[in-house]
Amino acid sequence: TEHYTFHTEEQAQRAAKKFKKQGLPVTIHEKNGKFTLQVN
């Protein structure tokens, strides 16, 4: 499991699309105004 932190939801969504294209499951969590992208 890898985690990436982004300052905006837009950045997180863009990164999520790249991972999803590779067939990886992705979840985004919002915490304290930051967005954490979790790749399993």
Rank of each mutant, 00 (worst) to 15 (best):
T1D: 10
T1R: 10
T1L: 13
T1Y: 14
T1N: 10
T1P: 10
T1M: 11
E2V: 13
E2P: 10
E2R: 14
E2H: 15
E2M: 13
E2S: 11
E2F: 13
E2L: 14
E2Q: 13
E2T: 12
H3P: 07
H3N: 10
H3Q: 11
H3R: 11
H3G: 09
H3W: 15
H3L: 11
Y4I: 07
Y4A: 05
Y4P: 05
Y4F: 09
Y4N: 05
Y4W: 11
Y4M: 08
Y4V: 05
T5Q: 08
T5G: 05
T5M: 08
T5Y: 12
F6N: 00
F6C: 06
F6H: 02
F6R: 00
F6G: 01
H7K: 09
H7F: 12
H7V: 09
H7T: 11
H7Q: 13
T8L: 04
T8I: 04
T8A: 03
E9S: 07
E9L: 15
E9T: 05
E9R: 14
E9A: 10
E9H: 10
E10H: 07
E10K: 10
E10D: 07
E10T: 06
E10G: 06
E10N: 06
Q11F: 04
Q11R: 05
Q11A: 13
A12H: 00
A12D: 00
A12W: 01
A12S: 01
A12F: 01
Q13A: 08
Q13P: 00
Q13D: 04
R14I: 10
R14K: 10
R14L: 08
R14T: 08
R14S: 08
R14V: 08
R14M: 09
A15E: 06
A15L: 06
A15R: 03
A15M: 10
A15D: 01
A15T: 04
A16F: 05
A16N: 01
A16C: 08
A16E: 04
A16S: 05
A16I: 05
A16R: 03
A16Y: 07
A16K: 03
K17M: 10
K17T: 09
K17V: 11
K17N: 12
K17S: 11
K18H: 13
K18T: 06
K18F: 14
K18G: 06
K18E: 13
K18N: 08
F19H: 03
F19Q: 01
F19T: 01
F19R: 01
F19K: 02
F19D: 01
F19Y: 08
F19G: 01
F19L: 10
F19W: 07
K20L: 14
K20M: 14
K20N: 06
K20R: 14
K20P: 02
K20V: 12
K21A: 14
K21G: 08
K21I: 09
K21H: 08
K21R: 10
K21C: 12
K21F: 07
Q22I: 11
Q22W: 11
Q22C: 15
Q22M: 15
G23T: 01
G23S: 03
G23R: 03
G23F: 03
G23N: 05
G23H: 04
G23I: 01
G23C: 05
G23M: 03
L24H: 10
L24Y: 10
L24K: 06
P25L: 15
P25H: 15
P25Y: 15
P25N: 15
P25Q: 15
P25A: 15
P25I: 15
P25V: 15
V26H: 03
V26I: 06
V26L: 03
V26T: 06
V26W: 03
V26C: 09
V26S: 04
V26K: 00
V26N: 01
V26G: 02
T27N: 05
T27Q: 09
T27L: 08
T27V: 09
T27P: 00
T27R: 07
T27I: 10
T27S: 10
T27Y: 08
T27E: 09
I28H: 00
I28F: 03
I28S: 00
I28A: 01
I28E: 00
I28D: 01
H29F: 14
H29R: 09
H29K: 09
H29M: 12
E30H: 10
E30V: 09
E30W: 08
E30F: 13
E30P: 05
E30Y: 13
K31T: 10
K31H: 13
N32H: 05
N32S: 04
N32K: 04
N32R: 03
N32A: 05
N32I: 00
G33Q: 02
G33K: 02
G33F: 01
G33Y: 01
K34Y: 13
K34S: 09
K34T: 08
F35V: 04
F35N: 02
F35I: 05
F35S: 02
F35R: 03
F35T: 03
F35Q: 02
F35A: 03
T36K: 05
T36V: 15
T36E: 14
T36D: 07
T36G: 06
T36H: 15
T36A: 06
L37G: 02
L37Q: 02
L37N: 02
L37Y: 02
L37V: 14
L37K: 02
L37W: 02
Q38Y: 14
Q38H: 14
Q38C: 15
Q38R: 06
Q38S: 12
Q38G: 05
Q38K: 06
Q38L: 13
Q38E: 14
V39E: 02
V39W: 08
V39A: 03
V39N: 01
V39R: 01
V39H: 03
V39P: 03
N40H: 13
N40A: 11
N40Y: 10
N40R: 06
